[in-house]
């Protein structure tokens, strides 16, 4: 770990100015991922700009009935927030499936969104990794690949995004509010995280200096049922092998709408548009679940160690849809 300066501005604009001015500067919030990375030598910032005083840490109802979540809201507070539990239970459930009580108390909404892959090669500075060191090669491609992506990967990177929260946000069609040197902008969360392509070093579409200030949720879909299902090797305190966030609307035993996002499959939370399309208008049957899942996984590319993810994802999605439509069949 190299020495760095530490500052703690009171306002977001000051923080943005400070980081924008210094290419070596990084934002620090809960620190659960960044401090880990400092120790591992994955990043060596010259300055840390602590944004905990500068960030909104409240959950507010918006004029359109949606909800704004300050980027500084800790994961535990967000998961426990009565409005979130009542109106967006899939988000609470996803948050509670992640990390541990202690980590959720520290980690923030913005930080969770920006957490980086747990690919073992990314986290080991002695091995090549295009995400950590562009051009050095991808060790995971031919290496230990149990966690590797099966969708949207490239020859440069097969890492997966580790967040549970972000998967739920994708299913909820959340928007990410960002403050940058040129002012504010809003980015749909489906599109906020990138696929690796030839530049896996960039996890998101943010530029240096841009600061996540809030996440906005549209009003809840009336009558929708939702759940978050995470499959992992330990019963708790483990990253997902695969996870599914799903919201469905069913009328007369037919899917009116479905919003489905996967975790553990790709470089970004994976919105399952094809599966959603297949389900819309289809009857609530085992066959529909299967066809939808197969459609989404049709283009999955697997390696030596991660082929299990395809049947696991298909089965998990079917299981989730079965659970959500129990009373419709």
């Amino acid at each position: 770990m190299r020495p760095f300066e530490y500052t703690r501005p009171a306002r977001a604009a000051e923080a943005v100015a400070a980081v924008t001015a210094d290419p070596g500067a990084r934002y620090l919030a809960g620190g659960t991922n960044l401090v880990d990375h400092l120790k591992l030598g994955l990043t060596a910032p010259t300055a840390l700009v602590d944004v905990r005083d500068a960030l909104d840490d409240t959950v507010r109802t918006l004029a359109d009935g949606g909800t704004s979540i300050g980027a500084g809201v800790p994961n535990s507070d967000l998961a426990a927030h009565p409005e979130i539990r009542r109106r967006y239970p899939v988000l609470s459930a996803a948050l509670l499936a992640g990390a541990s009580g202690q980590l959720r108390n520290m980690a923030t909404t913005g930080g969770n969104l920006l957490q980086r892959t747990r690919c073992v090669y990314f986290q080991d500075v002695t091995t090549p990794c295009n995400k950590r060191e562009p051009g050095s090669g991808c060790s995971a491609l031919e290496g230990h690949g149990r966690d590797n992506a099966v969708l949207g990967a490239s020859e440069f990177c097969v890492a997966t995004h580790p967040s549970d929260m972000a998967v739920a946000l994708c299913a909820l069609d959340a928007r990410v509010r960002v403050l940058g040197p040129d002012g504010e902008r809003t980015i749909p969360v489906n599109g906020f995280h990138r696929l690796p392509g030839a530049t896996p070093e960039r996890d998101t579409v943010l530029s240096h200096g841009e600061l996540v200030t809030a996440v906005e949720l549209p009003p809840p879909v009336p009558g929708a049922r939702s759940t978050y299902r995470k499959v992992r090797e330990r019963a708790s305190y483990a990253f997902a092998l695969v996870s599914v966030a799903a919201l469905v609307q069913v009328r007369d035993s037919q899917f009116v709408d479905a919003r489905i996002a996967f975790g553990g499959l790709a470089h970004a939370p994976w919105r399952a548009r094809r599966a959603e399309e297949v389900l819309r208008g289809r009857p609530v049957t085992e066959e529909s679940f299967q066809v939808a899942a197969d459609a989404e996984l049709a283009e999955a590319r697997t390696g030596r160690d991660n082929s299990y993810k395809v049947p696991l994802t298909v089965n998990t999605l079917a299981s989730v849809l079965r659970e959500l439509t129990e009373e419709d069949r």
Partner: peptide, 13 residues
């Protein structure tokens, strides 16, 4: 490659 307690799982509570 999984030389830490996030990668090498031991039973949790």
């Amino acid at each position: 490659v999984n030389g830490d307690l996030a990668g090498y799982h031991v039973a949790a509570n």
